[in-house]
């Protein structure tokens, strides 16, 4: 699909600070083939004049790798939460509409605070409990099949898109969301990680845990890395039930 156009029109939802009132600003920037949203934002930053001829401050956004592996540049683009580096202008309508993700508190403009996601990784103990960094030989053997499953889960870049699209995750709700749940599964599938499996599952039994998932399936559809998030959640539910029964029997 090619959407060559005389220029690119961009509407951005601006917000100066967390408590400030948001406002829309519209810009027009020169079109070139193969532009992405990041480049358009850079054009605006260099010449931050709205279509009404008003000079404003350069908009701010997060970005780093620009090849969709760091997870920084998530925003809502024409209604869809995604990475702005891989959002190509030729595939987008005119005007392009940019908003910060709504699930997270806005810091400024398109920058939101995703620290709840990193906190959730602590809650689910998203790590392998190694004894130390000294020399202890190779890790456990693994089949190619297991590696493929774990690799896919491990490509999660904490970008926040799955939380943004989840009806159960709001600024007020405690739900940890699909990303952290899927990480719990990732570590439960590793022989050493599995040594903490019960602890991980129990950490997800309480408020904000597994039971808060409403099974809308939005997360799996929106994940830019195609991670089977709902499969992870189903797997944890199954494991959680087994653990609960075992707890009951062994009282």
């Amino acid at each position: 699909m090619s959407n060559a156009r005389p220029h690119v029109t961009v509407r951005i939802l601006r917000q100066d600070a967390p408590e400030a009132t948001p406002r829309w600003e519209e810009f027009r920037t020169p079109y070139r083939p193969a532009l992405n949203v990041i480049t358009v934002l850079r054009d605006i930053r260099q010449n931050p004049v709205t279509v009404d001829g008003v000079r404003t401050t350069p908009p701010v956004w997060e970005s780093n790798c620009l090849e969709e592996v760091c997870g920084a540049c998530s925003m809502v683009i024409n209604g869809k939460a995604r990475q702005s580096c891989s959002a190509l202008v030729d595939h987008l309508p005119d005007p392009i509409v940019l908003q910060p993700m709504a699930t997270f508190p806005v810091v400024r403009d398109l920058i939101v605070d995703r620290s709840r996601m990193f906190d959730a990784l602590k809650r689910v103990m998203a790590w392998i409990p190694i004894d130390g960094t000294y020399s202890l030989g190779p890790g456990p053997r693994a089949s190619e099949e297991t590696q493929e499953v774990r690799y896919k889960l491990s490509t999660c870049m904490t970008c926040g898109v799955c939380l943004e699209v989840c009806p159960q995750v709001t600024r007020e709700s405690l739900f940890v969301g699909a990303a952290a749940l899927s990480q719990a599964r990732l570590f439960n599938t590793h022989p050493t990680g599995a040594m903490k499996k019960s602890e991980r599952l129990r950490a997800l039994m309480g408020p904000g845990g597994l039971a808060d998932c409403g099974n809308s399936q939005n997360c799996v559809a929106a994940c830019p890395k195609g991670i089977p998030l709902t499969t992870s959640i189903a797997d944890l539910n199954r494991e959680g039930t087994i653990l609960a029964i075992r707890d009951l029997l062994t009282g």
């Binding site: 190694i130 890790g139 590696q147 491990s154």
Partner: peptide, 14 residues
């Protein structure tokens, strides 16, 4: 080997 112990999903042989 340390990275392997930390759970890095390195590709595997048969």
């Amino acid at each position: 080997y340390l990275l392997d112990r930390m759970g890095v999903p390195f590709n595997r042989t048969g």
